[in-house]
């Protein structure tokens, strides 16, 4: 690692820490950092303030940190897989596939009266995202055009969302409000129980991605080239798509579909680090994903407080321009 890269990582860590503190401090009730420290030290779970911090804000921040990072990483792996920067779990319809199946599970659990466990949500979301990914893969083998692939992904997203809406509107329960919020993407409703599931899954996926950074780098030079320097391309592609799907499924299971983090953050990481080395860009994307989701969540919570915006509303406003500028740059490079 070069010095510049080391400095950047430290800077990013500082920004993340600052955002975490700000996120915990702000809200309908303001808390000072000193109070937070006191509550954390004493493990105060009783007082109103203690409950707000320990049961609501802290789990929410932890969720934004892990799920935001996971989304960006999932996007990065998809971009490596398709050898194209315009790829991400949301735009390719993968998040929506996960969303649809989780919505079905939610409605069923409400109807049949069984308690939905966190692990069930992950499993079901994973099945949904694999189905959507499978569809995208079939399309990608039929047509070698990235733009058609993206359009197909967006269409899959629409279909899944429409069906989800349909299911949601037939579910006649007071929980419908939660279901509706979740289906638009939100970090509200975060709790420690869920964290016990998504943290290990995401940590394992992150390590797996890091372990694959060497073949990912070779794969940047094309499938055939990777095949000639000793990579089992089929196995590698399989591993890549599985890790990426698990990540986006985990995020969707707990926070619903969140747009633009997966597609835009790896790009930001490449631009800021001025590097394409997966060893740098994997943690880099993860950290930018954290920053982006913490910022977006802060805005979603506070802009029209006490009303909360869905997180995707905010990520889209900031993420879409990044993607557009990225496409213009890419277009210019190809033509010029």
């Amino acid at each position: 690692m070069k010095r510049r890269e080391g400095t950047l990582f430290i800077l990013l860590l500082i920004v993340i820490f600052a955002l975490i503190v700000v996120n915990i401090c702000t809200g309908s009730v303001g808390v000072s950092p000193a109070e937070i420290l006191n509550i954390l030290k004493s493990g105060d779970n009783e007082s109103t303030m203690g409950r707000i911090i320990m049961q609501i804000r802290l789990p929410r921040v932890v969720e934004a940190v892990f799920l935001g990072g996971a989304l960006a990483l999932s996007g990065y792996l998809l971009q490596a897989f398709f050898a194209n920067p315009i790829a991400g779990p949301y735009i390719l319809g993968i998040s929506s596939g996960a969303k649809l199946l989780v919505a079905i599970l939610m409605v069923f659990s409400l109807k049949l009266g069984f308690v939905m466990k966190s692990w069930m949500m992950i499993v079901v979301a994973f099945i949904g995202s694999i189905i959507a990914t499978g569809f995208v893969l079939v399309v990608s083998y039929k047509v070698r055009s990235m733009s058609i692939l993206v359009v197909c992904g967006v269409m899959v997203g629409y279909i899944c969302s429409a069906v989800t809406e349909l299911i949601v509107s037939f579910a006649d329960d007071y929980n419908i409000v939660n279901l509706h919020n979740w289906s638009l993407g939100t970090f509200s409703g975060a709790n420690w129980n869920n964290a016990c599931y998504y943290i290990p899954v995401i940590v394992v996926c992150f390590l797996a991605a890091e372990a694959m950074s060497k073949p990912i780098e070779a794969y940047l030079f094309g499938e055939n080239y990777a095949g000639t320097i000793g990579i089992d391309v089929k196995k590698f592609r399989f591993a890549l798509i599985i890790v990426s799907s698990v990540l986006s499924a985990t995020v969707t299971a707990f926070a619903g579909p969140i747009s633009f983090v997966g597609i835009a953050m790896p790009h930001i990481a490449r631009v800021i680090f001025k590097s394409e080395r997966p060893g740098i860009i994997i943690p880099g994307s993860f950290m930018f994903g954290i920053i982006f989701s913490l910022l977006s969540d802060m805005i979603a919570r506070s802009l029209f407080a006490p009303t909360e915006l869905s997180i995707s509303t905010v990520t889209a406003v900031f993420g879409a321009p990044i993607v557009i500028s990225m496409m213009i740059r890419k277009g210019r490079r190809v033509n010029g």
Binding site: K214, E217, A218, L220, F221, G222, N224, Y225, T228, I229, G230, R270, F273, K274, S275, E276, R277, R333
Partner: peptide, 25 residues
């Protein structure tokens, strides 16, 4: 070793970065 006709699109890779990958094995 194989050198194919595939064109590669790099964004932030130096010449050394590209050659280095050849030692992959």
């Amino acid at each position: 070793s194989v050198m194919l006709t595939e064109r590669i699109n790099t964004e932030y890779m130096t010449v050394y970065d590209v050659v280095r990958v050849g030692r992959y094995q």
